[in-house]
Design a protein around this nucleic acid. Structure first.
Lengths: 157, 157
DNA sequence: ATGTTATAGTTACAACTGCAACTAATTGCA
DNA sequence: TGCAATTAGTTGCAGTTGTAACTATAACAT
């Protein structure tokens, strides 16, 4: 309210972005749609955030990781991981002990309850992925994999 | 601390997700990386969130939209748009008036200052997009466009 | 005309996130 | 040794976001 400016006329000399053709925008929509669909599924069943699920997923694959290693593998920052772990440990889904030779480091693993959740959620997640890929034919799927490999370059793990 | 469960042994019967090959995860990393790179640029120059930039971008293209229409075109929810607009109007970047025939609706447009920002940011955003696409050859670029068209189906527009 | 339903937009609250500051343990090096 | 610099992880705070509830206006249907 404190800046009563007049609207400028829509001059032809401007070159507005066309969001619907703009790659970053389209990636963002697609990514959010897909991730949200999966998250809905497991949030209905369990009280579990996407961050927490990702932590569980890496702990299912790699055993005895430290919190920092989880952060590296999930591309999340260490604060997010720390908080996710606090909730997961509290809920009895992850077991945390201290590294023998280095008392700073934690040694993490899924509990029995964590594994049960994992074995329930992982197939659901894969089903969603298949559902997305089913919109593409085999050739397109191969190109997509290749393109993502190139775009993610080194960092995409 | 209140649930001292033992960790389960990493049995071979589990089928953990491989995040680094999991499409939703890879999309999420890529999308965040790209969008964040662009956002950094204009957040350094202006105090402007990604949400606000998207609102400005559609107002640059479509004149006299209402808040609801902005929400539709940006695929954001109306609350996010309402808050972005509050800040943009306050900062003198967007002009808001009330629709003649319907006092609920707003009629939005960029101010002169808004246009100047837009004309500064839009080329930067396009440059980032080109930078990403430069990692692909022409054939891959065409496939990517086609694949996104299919995956985004109706809604992505 | 008047009560019901729908729509545009805002507000309130709780959860989440990101950054910086902090503690604790370890390493390096003089 | 012992003190500075690193590293692992947590906490606090400020800003953001998402959901639901709310206000105001308009459309509809009797």
């Amino acid at each position: 309210m404190s800046h009563p400016r007049k609207p400028a006329p829509a001059g032809a000399e401007h070159a507005p972005l066309e969001l619907e053709r703009f790659l970053p925008y389209r990636l963002s929509i697609l990514s959010n749609t897909v991730s949200q669909a999966i998250a809905n599924d497991y949030q209905r069943r369990y009280d579990l955030s996407m961050t927490e699920w990702r932590v569980m997923a890496v702990l299912a694959r790699f055993h005895g990781l430290s919190a920092r290693e989880v952060a590296e593998r999930t591309a999340m920052d260490k604060v997010a991981v720390s908080r996710a772990l606090a909730r997961l440990v509290e809920a009895g889904r992850v077991h945390r002990e201290t590294h023998g030779g280095d008392k700073r480091r934690s040694v993490l693993s899924l509990t029995e309850a964590g594994w049960i959740m994992h074995d329930d959620i992982a197939p659901m997640a894969r089903a969603h992925e298949r559902e997305v890929l089913a919109k593409l034919d085999t050739e397109e799927q191969q190109w997509l994999t290749r393109i993502l490999d190139k775009l993610l370059g080194g960092q995409g793990a």
